[in-house]
Nucleic acid binder design. Structure first.
Length: 574
DNA sequence: GCCGTTTTCGGCCCGACTGTTTTCAGTCG
């Protein structure tokens, strides 16, 4: 279910954007942003809090608490409604374009009445920005490129948003009388990083109540098509949802049919044909007699095709059929295999929760170990000092083993400088149990220098994990350019793990890079990079991505027992 | 708008990069 916290966060962030766009007080906009983030990252459900409770959340004061309470009570926030009436939604959409912020968006709106990304693209095409102050040739190039990046996601929505929507709908439909089974399928079940539309399946004798329920959901903005077998709607957030209702006996066949990528399904149907069978969403049938031979479960369907059950995340026709036929499918890593998170933050830097709160939440998840890796000093805005990180270490040692016997590792997230150097000298780095090293600046060095930079970071004996290696942001920024095969080889040679960062806008490495890297014999770490308690649960997106990269537990260092992990962290040192 | 071991005013994470308005505004992490 989408948490009320997430809804409030989105609304307050929207208000902050609108203040910035209308040229309001920048500090006021910042205040709303901070409150939005604090509420999104707050462990307790805000819909259960009254105004006093809300005010106990850091950065939420009298005014914001009142607005949140108003929203929770009425479903509306008057202040936001008023701003919306002033500024078309498309103007806010403009600031999602990289390099285009609130100031430029407002100028475009005021001078040229541009109020959508499409209008802006057309204006640039028509050279209508030529006389506009502050929009020189380079700026226009950057905007054009930014729009291109946005469009590459092709109207697809981030996995996390689609998953929230799908889980909500599945919960609603499961409660309808007559529901035998209900689940989401499609690219969402395959955990693709972006999702075009959400496919929901129901097994039931009668379809009508489910079609009615879907059309009547509060999140449903528009009914695109409504029939007895299939209904399509669009949600308020612009996401298309397709519902199929199947006879209960067809459940497995339906799930198989609507989950696999097109190429995977063509392969399975071809195998069926060669066996004198026909595969559809209703079942697997003998071609001659039309007699059903399998349909109730996916396992049955695959088995009758001579295949083991294939995990949904592998159903892309990237070799899984051949592997299945050989009996060589990977035993992919699952959330249950993860024994600890190796990249997390606290409020010592840009995290929201204290060390104690993060440790408690990690212990609740049943981890055997947990690493705290706050930012190192070369990221100036975090104001890290030797004293602060050493004081944190002291406190962490006190907490070590006290929460469900969970062991704590003291780490840091280093910044990889332009030449591959990191924040602290070796003697100081030696005091950490674990160091993640990441790129946070100088993204445009060019392939040669970037490759040397990353390789040099791997060669540092104190760097254990390369954090979000390509530093891409899905739909907003491509990954840095480097000779990745050379970097992956360096990781394998030096015993440096590559991170699979689970933040839903990163998923970095991505599935294809993982497949390429694992061919070099690299180890991986699936980490959340959590900046708050709720973000610890984002592990699932990292696991989905790891599975899509065919990773097995043995390749993922944070599935290992602590003694084996510690051996890896020695990295050839004694 | 929030916050307070500078507590009811006056600050607010700091620095780098980019393009262009050539002395700095806008954007980003």
């Amino acid at each position: 279910m989408a948490r009320a916290n997430d809804e409030v966060e989105a609304l307050l962030q929207e208000y902050a954007d609108l203040i910035a766009i209308t040229g309001g007080d920048a500090f006021k906009a910042r205040a709303y942003e901070k409150a939005a983030r604090a509420i999104g990252g707050h462990p307790a459900d805000v819909s259960k809090l009254d105004e006093d409770g809300l005010r106990e959340i850091p950065n939420v004061g009298r005014s914001i608490a009142a607005k949140v309470a108003e929203y929770l009570r009425t479903g509306k926030m008057a202040a936001v409604e008023e701003q919306r009436a002033e500024i078309p939604a498309g103007v806010r959409e403009l600031i999602t374009i990289p390099t285009l912020g609130p100031k430029k968006a407002l100028r475009l709106h005021e001078a040229l009445h541009i109020s959508s990304v499409n209008e802006l693209a057309a204006a640039i095409e028509a050279d209508a920005l030529a006389d506009l102050k502050g929009f020189g040739e380079k700026t226009q190039d950057n905007i054009r490129h930014g729009i291109e990046l946005l469009r590459q996601s092709g109207g697809r929505v981030p996995l996390a948003l689609a998953l929230d929507t799908a889980e909500e709908i599945v919960a609603e439909l499961s409660a309808v009388t007559g529901c035998r089974r209900c689940a989401y399928a499609g690219s969402l079940r395959r955990m693709r990083e972006t999702v075009g539309d959400v496919d929901v399946l129901v097994a039931a004798a009668k379809s009508e109540p489910f079609m009615a329920a879907l059309c009547g959901l509060p999140g449903t903005a528009e009914v695109i098509a409504r029939g007895t077998k299939k209904t399509s709607v669009r949600t308020g957030k612009g996401l298309q949802v397709d519902l199929r209702v199947l006879p209960p006996a067809s459940w497995g066949a339906g799930l198989q049919y609507f989950t696999g990528a097109k190429a995977h399904n063509i392969r399975t149907r071809t195998i069926a044909v060669h066996r004198g069978l026909k595969l559809s969403e209703y079942g697997l049938f003998e071609t001659e007699s039309g007699k059903s031979v399998a349909s109730r479960t996916e396992e049955e369907v695959y088995a009758r095709l001579g295949l083991p059950w294939i995990p949904p995340t592998l159903r892309e026709d990237r070799g899984e059929i051949e592997a299945a036929l050989r009996g060589a499918l990977p035993d992919v890593v699952t959330e249950r295999d993860i024994r600890g998170d190796l990249h997390t933050h606290t409020d010592l830097t840009d995290g929201l929760a204290s060390l104690e709160v993060m440790v408690e939440a990690a212990a609740e998840r049943g981890y055997a170990y947990y690493a705290v890796t706050d930012h190192a000093p070369d990221m100036p805005m975090q104001r890290m000092t030797d004293e602060k990180i050493l004081a944190q270490r002291e406190r962490l040692r006190e907490l070590d083993g006290t929460r469900r016997r969970m062991r704590l590792l003291h780490g840091t997230e280093l910044n990889i400088g332009p030449d591959g150097e990191v924040d602290w000298p070796d003697a100081f780095l030696a005091g950490f149990d674990l160091c993640v090293a990441s790129l946070h600046s100088h993204f445009d060095l060019g392939r040669g220098p970037m490759t040397r930079r990353l390789v040099r970071a791997c060669e540092n004996p104190y760097v254990h994990v390369l954090g979000h290696p390509t530093t891409r942001l899905i739909g907003r920024r491509p990954g840095v350019d480097a000779d990745w095969d050379e970097v992956f080889a360096a990781c394998a040679r030096t015993g440096t793990a590559l991170e699979v960062n689970a933040q839903p806008d990163r998923l970095d490495l991505c599935d294809e890079d993982i497949l390429r890297a694992r061919a070099h014999g690299v180890r991986f770490a699936v980490n959340t990079d959590a900046h708050s308690v709720p973000q610890l649960a984002q592990l699932r997106y990292g696991i989905g991505t790891a599975q899509r990269g065919w990773l097995t537990p043995d390749e993922v260092i944070n599935t290992w027992p602590l003694t084996r992990l510690r051996r890896f962290l020695r990295k050839g040192r004694r």
